Computed example of a mutant assay.
Amino acid sequence: MSVIALIIIGAAAGFLATRLMRIEADIPTTMLIGIVGALIGGLILRTLTTIMGGLAGFVGAVLGALLVIWLWQRYRGR
């Protein structure tokens, strides 16, 4: 999956991840969380993407965004 595709998917994944983690974040922060998470998740789960197709890339993006939110909350505080 290209980096551009990960950025586009990441914006949507960030929105979903912030809702799943129940945090309030402004739109740029939500998008940044999603994009970073998509890049991390997309790169880590590249092998899974080749096996299962495009859905795995979205799942990886959401998981990556959830990881970024968890790290952000843990080290930044509430």
Rank of each mutant, 00 (worst) to 15 (best):
L20Y: 11
G42K: 07
G14D: 12
Y75R: 14
G42S: 12
I69W: 03
I23G: 08
L43G: 09
V36M: 09
E24C: 07
I8Y: 01
L39N: 09
E24Y: 09
A65D: 04
R46T: 12
A13Q: 12
R78D: 05
A38E: 06
A12T: 10
M1C: 02
I35R: 09
I9W: 02
R22G: 03
L43Q: 10
G54N: 11
L6N: 13
L6I: 05
V36I: 12
L43T: 08
L45S: 09
I4A: 07
L71Y: 13
T18Q: 07
L20N: 10
V59P: 11
A5K: 10
L71M: 14
A5C: 09
A65F: 05
T50V: 10
A11W: 01
E24T: 10
A56D: 02
W70P: 00
R19W: 14
T49D: 13
T49R: 11
M31K: 02
A56G: 04
S2Y: 05
I44Y: 12
L20R: 09
G34V: 09
L48R: 15
A17I: 08
V36N: 02
Y75Q: 14
I33F: 03
V68T: 09
D26Y: 00
L71H: 11
W70V: 04
M21G: 08
R19P: 06
R19V: 12
P28A: 08
G34W: 00
L16S: 06
I7P: 01
T47F: 03
I33R: 05
A38M: 08
V62L: 10
A61Y: 03
